[in-house]
Write a protein that binds this DNA or RNA. Structure first.
Lengths: 300, 300
DNA sequence: CCCGGGCTTAAGCTGTACTGCATGCTCGAC
DNA sequence: GTCGAGCATGCAGTACAGCTTAAGCCCGGG
């Protein structure tokens, strides 16, 4: 493989028509350029220039090398330019992940704002459970993940990652509408003590964190929940609750997926999902920009 | 424009998966590689690698640069390879020039032999008068020229060029077939003294060297020729001679273009066109190969 | 808790490659 | 013919880029 440095000086020489002119362009002395070309001719064991009284002309081999040098030079210039585009957010990509209910409720408006500000950045979003995200981030398969962790609760292993608090998602319990007076209301009015639900049958969200959370919460209250059903779909959970199969935990973000014949109550002690944005500690420009957007939404 | 050297080490690092492995491949210490990458990150003001416990992974910018580096590396390899092809005559071109009669008689078999030996070399041939060729060669517009110079005569200005003798082309005088006994013979048998032609009308080859040569020759013999006609076409010259318009100088190489009703005689003093191959002093491989072919033909 | 693999940093050295200058060459002008 | 301008080149000296060495740090695993 030829020395690219020398190839580029050959290119400058041929374009300028003389070593002296090329040297002036490159900020060198003619002697330096001459030595570079001589070195390249040694490398290729081929004369590349024919020396004239008033400059030089390329041989066939020289002209061939200049063509390649043009491509190389263009690539080097484009490479620098594209990296600049990346940092200026005139290009690039942002790979997002989020859990389902945030993807549906929280992200769309943020994504819209981001796209208006940086239309050239390609966005992608995949649905991921919070506990999958840290490894995906660490492996470089993801740029930003919207996750949650239950409070109280163990939280995620975010070693080596940066977590940005976004909001708290309060968890309710969904009850079948036994009292006709409550039908049609989605606003959680009264609180209900967890221990009250000691004997209830539970319909459980199938997400791995939610599964554990239910068991942990009940253990704290001193009992083991009776799991009647696992489902990963809130409309279905809603149907099961309405049919009287059991009760279910439903965070605020998923409330809109509940049917009309379900009653929601706050829990006591209060259970919250802490929603965070997870990133690598040195975020890419696009990632940082999205964090800005998310933080600004939080304020409003 | 980025430093291509550093770009290529970045490529090696990403391909190897770690700086240490890349260093081993490149024959450097890990420290050297680390410094190169750090320099590139400074140049681009962008992190290019994310450091892990067991190696490194490229950031988006890093991956982008590696793509460009791949192209650069391929080009550098191809460039070296194609230059090697050129010197090994597996590629390249050979631009020939010759005067008309050599192009028709002397070159075809040489070109055939060359093509059999080096089929990958692209050949081109243009018709040029000898006095045009030195400048074309010096300007790099030509690789090899078949030329002639009259002996005795001034010869060409071949300063800075290399001339390879190929053959001597003896010049005859073409006379109208006044004697019916001579009709139908093309073999120049007897000689004729130039001074004998003092009063003849001349049909002159229009080629610049031939025009002068006729005048010079006659001046040496002590008279000025009476030019009746200039033509650049030997069949036409032949016709004019046959019609009795005048006499003409016809070298051996053009004899086959003469009609049947023309008589040819050697001149005294003998006039010869010295046929040479003209090249630059450091011929390209293809040019050298063609010189070999021409020299070997000369021997046979 | 220690160990090992890997990246980084600082310091020092080496070799590449640039400068400066003298030389040789060609061409054009006087 | 002589001289000067413009250009390429070679040599000696030098400076700096980039390498090595050595030490340190971080992280993950036994």
């Amino acid at each position: 493989m030829l020395d690219p440095r020398r190839l580029l000086t050959l290119r400058a020489v041929v374009r300028a028509g003389s070593m002296t002119a090329a040297a002036a362009e490159l900020g060198y002395t003619p002697s330096a350029v001459s030595q570079q070309v001589a070195a390249l001719e040694r490398e290729t064991a081929t004369p590349l220039l024919v020396r004239h009284a008033r400059g030089v002309l390329p041989t066939e081999a020289g002209a061939l090398l200049v063509e390649h040098a043009d491509v190389v030079a263009n690539r080097l210039a484009r490479a620098a330019e594209e990296v600049a585009d990346l940092t200026a957010l005139r290009a690039g990509r942002l790979r997002l992940a989020s859990f389902a209910s945030a993807g549906a409720r929280l992200l769309p408006s943020a994504i819209g704002a981001f796209r208006r500000r940086h239309p050239a950045v390609r966005l992608s979003l995949e649905l991921r459970e919070p506990d999958e995200c840290p490894d995906l981030l660490r492996d470089g398969d993801l740029d930003l993940a919207i996750t949650f962790g239950y409070v109280p609760g163990p939280g995620l292993d975010t070693e080596g990652l940066t977590a940005t608090f976004l909001s708290d998602d309060v968890v309710n319990v969904a009850l079948p509408a036994g009292d006709p007076a409550l039908e049609g209301t989605f606003t959680p009015t009264d609180e209900i003590d967890v221990s009250t639900l000691r004997d209830a049958a539970w319909i459980r969200d199938a997400g791995s964190l939610c599964r554990e959370q239910l068991v942990d919460m009940c253990a704290t209250a001193g009992f083991t929940p009776n799991i009647a059903f696992d489902s990963d779909d809130f409309p279905m959970v809603s149907g099961l609750v309405e049919s009287g199969v059991g009760v279910a935990l439903v965070p605020d973000l998923a409330v809109h997926q509940m049917g009309r014949r379900v009653v929601l109550r706050r829990l006591r002690p209060r259970v919250v999902r802490r929603i965070e944005a997870l990133t690598l500690p040195h975020p890419t420009p696009a990632t940082a920009a999205m964090l800005d957007v998310l933080r600004s939404r939080r304020a409003t």
